[in-house]
Design a protein around this nucleic acid. Structure first.
Length: 206
DNA sequence: CGGCTGATGATCT
DNA sequence: GATCATCAGCCGG
């Protein structure tokens, strides 16, 4: 915010997170990602997610645990951050119990706090383009590999919260940018939000 | 806005 | 050596 207090955000507890990964992906719509950096707070309201499940050929965990995807196998509520296409970082929330690899990809947020910081990091000003897409989101919110594996339900540099604002109707579609298991309805988004990525035919605009 | 393409480098086979 | 859970830029409508 440019003046006064930021948005009132309370931290989510692990117990609040649905134990089913698909339910978690839907639950996270309207919740808040908070990134506390030395310069201040960057936060955004989640408007788009995708679930990646156990036994799902599109999931990074499908072929078992490796050094990269290790965090996916942590208990739900931990961060899994990885590098995509050699350049973009992606933020996921692990969704299952220790030893089972599932997760929710956070694809887009509506900027709340720290918009000036996001604009500086993104090198552009248009609010609707700051975090519309997982790579843009990570760049705007300074999501680094150093955050991989941290617990998002405790105090720290990156955590999940909620506000008292009500969430709009949640739409469902197929996931974006994958070829395996591409027909499963595992993408969730807030209908009508201007901050959602992807083609309009998937319902991203109203 | 939709469609296409090249960039880019970590990861795993 | 192949494979990407993407993006910016460019083009046409």
């Amino acid at each position: 915010m440019s003046s006064g207090l930021g948005v009132r955000i309370t931290r989510l507890t692990r117990a609040e997170l649905p134990a089913d990964t698909t339910e978690l992906a839907r639950f996270l719509i309207g919740k808040i990602v908070v990134r506390d950096v030395p310069d201040g707070r960057i936060s955004g309201r989640i408007v788009e997610t995708e679930a990646y499940l156990h036994g799902d050929a599109a999931a990074h965990s499908f072929r078992g645990e490796t050094p990269r995807n290790r965090s996916l196998f942590l208990e739900r509520g931990h961060a899994y951050v990885y590098v995509s296409y050699g350049i973009h970082r992606m933020l996921n929330v692990a969704g299952s119990v220790h030893g089972i690899g599932t997760g929710v990809l956070i694809r887009a947020v509506e900027p709340l706090d720290g918009i000036v910081l996001m604009q500086a990091r993104r090198g552009m000003t248009r609010i609707t383009d700051l975090a519309r897409g997982p790579g843009k989101l990570a760049q705007a919110m300074d999501i680094t590999l150093g955050l991989d594996g941290i617990d998002l339900t405790v105090e720290g540099p990156l955590w999940l919260g909620r506000t008292d604002r009500t969430t709009g109707e949640v739409g469902v579609s197929v996931r974006i940018g994958i070829t395996k298991e591409a027909d499963r309805p595992l993408r969730f988004f807030e209908r009508g939000s201007q901050y959602v990525s992807g083609p309009k035919r998937l319902g991203s605009a109203a």
